[in-house]
Design a protein around this nucleic acid. Structure first.
Length: 659
RNA sequence: GGCCCCGUAGCUCAGCAUGGAUAGAGCGGCGGCUUUCUAAGCCGAAGGUCGAGGGUUCAAAUCCCUCCGGGGCCGCCA
């Protein structure tokens, strides 16, 4: 076909131009156009592809090259320079450039719809579901995410972490990185010991109900009983009215927690209040359990691992439901038992930046950072003071960050880059960790990045797992599912129950993932049901709905596999804009992955949907007045369908065939 | 007190990395659209001292400084 000759001609031409990577042209149509333009300017000016901008309005073109800076360098006026460059590009008569226009210091390029569509069509024909991938330098990457303490169900805040990490991993794979996702199981801390203590007191029964919820209940009770014991002891020794008042209010607070939790699980409350009352000293029992687990004492190891695995089983069920995947669960305790932590502690004890204070070991991160020039290396201001890091408790047991040092060494031995999705409140310890490891000679730690995210708040307060005050991801999934079932039934009365459920399942996950991923990670999210159950514009379900419209069109069109559209028929503004936007997917993927900003992809999806829905409303596809026009529009729908599918797969959502 | 993050329309958010062309969406409110491919949709009008003030620049929501408001962290939680 003539059309296909044109495509191949365009692509080969680009591939032969200096500095153009043939393989890359196949992945990134827009990039190849930029390179083509750069080629036509090369006699006068050297331009990088990323100097191009997207004009603020499509009326100004599809690509813009700002020349203010160059004009300043060369002593030209921006106006004169942009006119000169525009003439240069025009005289090159690039077949994909419809028009070049110099406007106030910019050179604006209007691309030919047909050329862009041909390039995307060719790319999609070759790549299929890989369209959107944007290869970069290959490297091994570990993304650690979720990593919630295995003592309570995943709440909606942990879900934000999980969705962010999972989406980032998908984006990095689209950059052709070799990605391994890790869930770091913090099974050695005080939190786990609390739940384990309660579990032991009950005689290690099989959990009733979903296991992570069962463990979560143990944890809230254990924590409350221990806090109460501790507070009461302090009350006995409290001096002065103010002190007494303060401790008393703490006691009231924990009594309140017990009351709330006992309503949820009266039987467990009864059993545990007796068991804790019988304990001579719960704090002592707790510390002993913690110590035994760190030392690897057989019965304790069995107990804690059993409890932790119950909780992880619950996590896995929930995460599977939400399409979140982890390649590996890494147990923190293993690092203690195989001597990795001790090895690091030995090195640290010899470090000039470490000293004993009282009975605990302290690392002077500020001095280390200053003497080794690490603030500059890590890109933080010189004025930022890094507080000292406590490495061991007075009883010799380790703290979270200390164990995390050993874990970081493991991760860096297995990957070139490490992204840790961890709450913003841990910025300081994460920085201390980098300084400590660098000071011990682990220079590769510069490649470990703490990716901070802010919390999901509940009615203006932080959710607290310790007090049992949180919204579980399971509850949100359930609620969204029920709501989706209603909506699907209302619109599709003829569907059988299984189909309805299958659709509702996809819609609900899309709603939640989309809602949480579309807000920049360093902004707090205030949880509201309205937000996560939003099925209208700017939502996951809206995007799915748009996709379903394309599905439905394609299904009605019959077999499109041999479609050979002549895109010269695409002449409307909407068609042009849609085509150009579709062609931008690879660069959006590149941007989102490289800048750790998955929300950019969500934003892109919404733009595509808005444009298409408006087009759909105004323009008949199947009923187009001419068969060739129909095929061209159908071809556009095929490309949009492919583009949305690729986006969904990157966002971890699965589109239904109808809804 | 020191440090980190946030502050854009009534509400929820894009845009800020690499300054650039009239600051964009959605929700809510207002007014319309369904004999036509799924109305979870579309179209229209309204709504902004980009927290405040200074500075750098031909050009600042974007960079720098100060201040205000909210959140977080600051020695044995994670």
């Amino acid at each position: 076909m003539a059309v296909h000759k044109t495509i191949n001609h365009t692509v080969t031409c680009l591939a032969k131009m200096p500095g153009i990577d043939g393989d890359h042209a196949e992945f990134d149509p827009m990039g190849s156009f930029k390179r083509g333009i750069i080629g036509s300017l090369s006699s006068t000016l050297s331009v990088e592809p990323d100097e191009f901008e997207v004009p603020p309005s499509p009326d100004l073109g599809d690509l813009a090259l700002p020349v203010h800076a160059e004009a300043k360098r060369s002593g030209d006026t921006p106006d004169a320079l942009s006119r000169r460059l525009a003439d240069l590009v025009a005289s090159a008569a690039l077949d994909f450039v419809e028009r070049v226009q110099p406007v106030g210091g910019y050179v604006n390029f209007f691309l030919r719809t047909e050329s862009v569509a041909d390039a995307v069509w060719s790319s999609i024909s070759k790549l299929g579901e890989k369209y959107g991938e944007n290869p970069s330098t290959p490297s091994r990457v570990i993304v650690e995410h979720t990593s919630a303490n295995p003592v309570h169900p995943l709440h909606i805040g942990a879900a934000r972490n999980a969705f962010f990490g999972d989406t980032l991993a998908r984006l990095l794979r689209a950059r052709h990185k070799t990605v391994t996702t890790h869930f770091y199981v913090d099974d050695t801390g005080r939190q786990t010991a609390l739940a384990a203590l309660a579990y032991k007191l009950l005689g290690e029964p099989e959990p009733s109900g979903k296991p992570d919820f069962y463990v979560g209940s143990l944890y809230v009770f254990a924590n409350a009983f221990v806090e109460l014991y501790d507070a009461k002891a302090r009350l006995a020794e409290a001096e002065g009215d103010e002190e007494v008042k303060r401790v008393q209010s703490e006691i009231d607070e924990w009594m309140g927690v017990l009351a709330e939790q006992s309503k949820r699980d009266p039987a467990m409350f009864e059993a545990l209040s007796r068991a804790f009352a019988d304990l001579e000293d719960p704090v002592l029992a707790l510390n002993q359990l913690m110590m035994e687990y760190e030392e690897g004492v057989g019965v304790t190891v069995k107990l804690v691992r059993k409890l932790v695995n119950h909780c992880l089983e619950g996590f896995k069920q929930t995460l599977r439901r939400a399409n979140v995947n982890h390649d590996r669960f890494y147990f923190e305790s293993d690092l203690l038992w195989d001597g990795s932590v001790e090895l690091l502690l030995e090195k640290l004890r010899d470090s000039p930046y470490v000293k004993m204070e009282g009975r605990s070991l302290i690392f002077d991160a500020e001095r280390a950072a200053n003497e080794l020039g690490l603030k500059e290396l890590f890109g933080i201001p010189k004025t930022r003071v890094i507080p000292p890091l406590v490495l061991t408790r007075s009883d010799g047991t380790t703290l979270y960050t200390t164990r995390d040092l050993a874990y970081s060494v493991v991760k860096l031995s297995e990957a070139d880059y490490v992204y840790n999705i961890i709450g913003a409140e841990q910025s300081t310890p994460q920085l201390q960790l980098k300084v400590a490891l660098y000071s011990l000679g682990y220079k590769k730690i510069v490649n470990q990045v703490h990716v901070p995210y802010e919390h999901v708040e509940l009615e203006g307060e932080r959710m607290t797992s310790r007090r049992g005050r949180y919204i579980a991801l399971d509850s949100v999934l359930d609620e969204a599912f029920n709501r989706s079932v209603d909506e699907v039934k209302r619109r599709n009365k003829e569907l059988d129950d299984d189909t309805v459920k299958s659709i509702a399942d996809k819609v609900s996950v899309a709603a939640i993932r989309f809602a949480l991923i579309s807000v920049n990670a360093n902004k707090k999210i205030s949880f509201s049901w309205d937000r996560v159950l939003n099925f209208e514009s700017n939502s996951g379900p809206y995007a799915l709905y748009t996709y379903v419209r394309t599905r439905s069109l394609l299904a009605k069109a019959g077999d499109t596999s041999r479609l050979q559209p002549d895109f010269s028929w695409l002449r409307s503004q909407d068609e042009h804009r849609l085509t150009v936007l579709i062609a931008r997917l690879p660069e959006v993927v590149g941007y989102a992955a490289d800048n750790l900003r998955p929300e950019a992809l969500a934003d892109y999806v919404l733009k595509l949907c808005d444009l298409f829905n408006s087009y759909y409303d105004s323009t008949p596809v199947l009923g187009a007045p001419d068969p060739a026009l129909r095929d061209a529009r159908l071809g556009l729908v095929v490309m949009l369908n492919r583009t949305l599918s690729s986006c969904f797969s990157l966002l971890g959502i699965v589109p239904p065939e109808r809804m």
